[in-house]
């Protein structure tokens, strides 16, 4: 092609070098975690950076049994699945109402939901806990599911509202002319149409719920989710890095797997959403 295209390519190649370094740094944690998970404690202390010489899966076994990963894993999956499902339903309902329906106080309600995005967990730690206690939700998975839903809802609602607001109005009008009730419009039209946004939200919220430590620690004090179990492996004084690394590999694997599987769909979903808009 013409000259500018050639120059473009030169710029892009030049940019590729630092971008490659950055990409390598993003992969480094995998190497770090797996490499150290295979060392024993003494081996790690004597050589922290080197490649493992005498690999052993002992740490994985210990992490799995001692940190009761079977039990914690089940808790994490239940709570994350429940919360993500609830988030998608509730935010899609709210998004539909805010974006499509016409009613008084719409702006006010939208404002309240958005403003609550600005209330960080730390700010409401004690009162939030007391609310959980007052509702008898302490140490229940339902309590944690509701808490996650409440904490991640503002962002999800905003996103669904924005997404629905961008859909062609004619679709809704057409559905309504056909005599469909609003709930049916939501179920048969809005939910399927919202798929790209729902998919993106599903992944993001899975990530937030799975990785959360603080809310889970407050609500499920006797039971454990996986990330809390991992955090508890860091003792007062001792940090057994090889054991911690093994636990982290086990804890992150499901999420990484999920991301790798859905990555293509997320990006594709975003693209179709964009075209439709």
């Amino acid at each position: 092609m013409s000259k500018p295209a050639k120059r473009d390519r030169r710029i892009l190649w030049a940019a590729s070098v630092p971008m490659m370094l950055l990409a390598l740094s993003c992969v480094y944690p995998i190497y770090f975690a797996i490499n150290n998970a295979l060392k024993d404690r003494k081996g790690y202390i004597l050589d922290r950076f080197g490649l493992v010489t005498d690999p052993s899966i002992e740490n994985f076994v210990t992490a799995w049994s001692r940190a009761r990963f079977d039990e914690y894993f089940f808790n994490s999956v239940t709570v994350t699945a429940g919360a993500v499902l609830a988030l998608l339903l509730v935010s899609s309902l709210a998004g539909f109402a805010l974006a499509v329906l016409r009613f008084p106080a719409r702006k006010l309600i939208f404002g309240v939901i958005l403003a609550s995005l600005m209330i960080p967990v730390q700010v409401v730690l004690v009162p939030f806990y007391q609310t959980i206690v007052a509702l008898e939700l302490l140490n229940t998975r339902i309590g944690l599911i509701l808490s996650y839903t409440a904490f991640f809802l503002p962002f999800s609602t905003y996103l669904m509202t924005a997404f629905y607001a961008a859909l062609p109005r004619e679709l809704v009008d057409a559905a309504r002319v056909d005599g469909a009730k609003f709930l049916q419009v939501w179920w048969y039209v809005m939910l399927p149409m919202g798929k790209p946004a729902l998919l993106t939200l599903g992944i993001l919220n899975t990530l937030y719920c799975w990785n959360d430590v603080l809310i889970s620690l407050l609500v499920l004090q006797d039971e454990r989710t996986l990330m809390v179990g991992i955090a508890a492996l860091r003792g007062e004084y001792t940090t057994n890095v090889p054991l911690l690394s093994a636990a982290i590999v086990l804890g992150a694997a499901p999420i990484v797997l999920l991301y790798v599987i859905f990555q293509r769909k997320i990006v594709a979903g975003i693209a179709t959403g964009a075209v439709k808009g």
Partner: peptide
């Protein structure tokens, strides 16, 4: 309990 949050948790729990 994770040691870094131990006294925070204990405080919230005891106060309730």
């Amino acid at each position: 309990q994770p040691h870094d949050q131990y006294y925070t948790l204990l405080g919230t729990a005891l106060s309730s």
